[in-house]
Design a protein around this nucleic acid. Sequence first.
DNA 1: ATTATCTATAGATCTATAGATAATGC
DNA 2: ATTATCTATAGATCTATAGATAATGC
Lengths: 191, 191
Amino acid sequence: MPYGDAMTARTRSEERRAEIVRATLEVIAERGYRGASLAAVAERVGLTQQGLLHHFPTKEALLVAVLGERDQWDALPGTEWRAELLVALVEYNAMRPGIIQTFSALLGESVTEGHPARAFFTRRYTTVRAHMAEALRAEYGERLPSGLTPERAAPLLVAVMDGLQYQWLLDPESVDMPAAFRDFLTLLGED
Amino acid sequence: MPYGDAMTARTRSEERRAEIVRATLEVIAERGYRGASLAAVAERVGLTQQGLLHHFPTKEALLVAVLGERDQWDALPGTEWRAELLVALVEYNAMRPGIIQTFSALLGESVTEGHPARAFFTRRYTTVRAHMAEALRAEYGERLPSGLTPERAAPLLVAVMDGLQYQWLLDPESVDMPAAFRDFLTLLGED
DNA sequence: ATTATCTATAGATCTATAGATAATGC
DNA sequence: ATTATCTATAGATCTATAGATAATGC
């Protein structure tokens, strides 16, 4: 058995859990987390609701597993966030409406009281803004051509990405998400 | 009885309905629409759940009434959307986290399948983008100083407003929403 | 022997309907 | 007479626990 296989070898149990997490992603896209029933997820993987709870003891444990799939949310690693890569990310997102819908539904719910994803998103945005600022600094230095500091441009960059996703999910025909995002990058980069 | 009073006179029933809509706004902010139970709304206005259903026959009728409070969502009338007024709107929003939380929770849920607010938001964004473009055209003509056409700048403006709201709701200490929005307007207006 | 899955079920909800009673408006 | 509100309740869910049975791994 080659090393590669050994490294990625998954037990039956791990396979099952991965299947379940995938199904959960789908059901959350369709109904949100609060609206996602364990029975609906179970049915999608051919289990009873009680069979599903053998793999994840509570509904919240399922959500934690979903949020833990960081590569789904942050398709690009740490410091590599140059402008061209951001455009590539937005173009990639425009090809996977399901994931973006899951993300957007969870983000929306997360602002409600006591939502189990709230801390996750709060931390995530702190991190993402910091990474963005770092990337912008690497590309432009202390001032962008537009005159903004990297720290002030970062939340705008993130806001445009998220805000465009909602407009696009609601009306994909009317909103060219990648083109709009490129327009925004032009604004940031022009002086 | 002066005319003014006659015009705004409300029957007991209208008063009650308005109270109920207010309470619904609050409960949606706390739990989203799917998580908002009729019982929770009823309790807040001192009614039983069945008593509430006398005023609104179904849960969805309640949501329709909430979405109908257009002045809550669009605090500024039609064509008056000049830049200063937009800043004023964002500053106003920063003072009413409850309403923004209701709006953001509903927007997030609305992208899920068959959500009763979906059509509302789809239409609303079409309208809002058109109004924004119109306002930008009135202020700048066919090209903004940044070189964008009003039609291309409009979705970015809306995206920034919505995206900043999520970041701000999740972490108000870290995000100065009005300042960030002003930064964005500077980007748009500078050449 | 351990892991996976199932049946049975408790105990909370939830929305909505039916019909009785209390309050209000002419 | 009409409107507002209540009690009672149907009928669906929902999450989670308990415990039995089947499948798998050493």
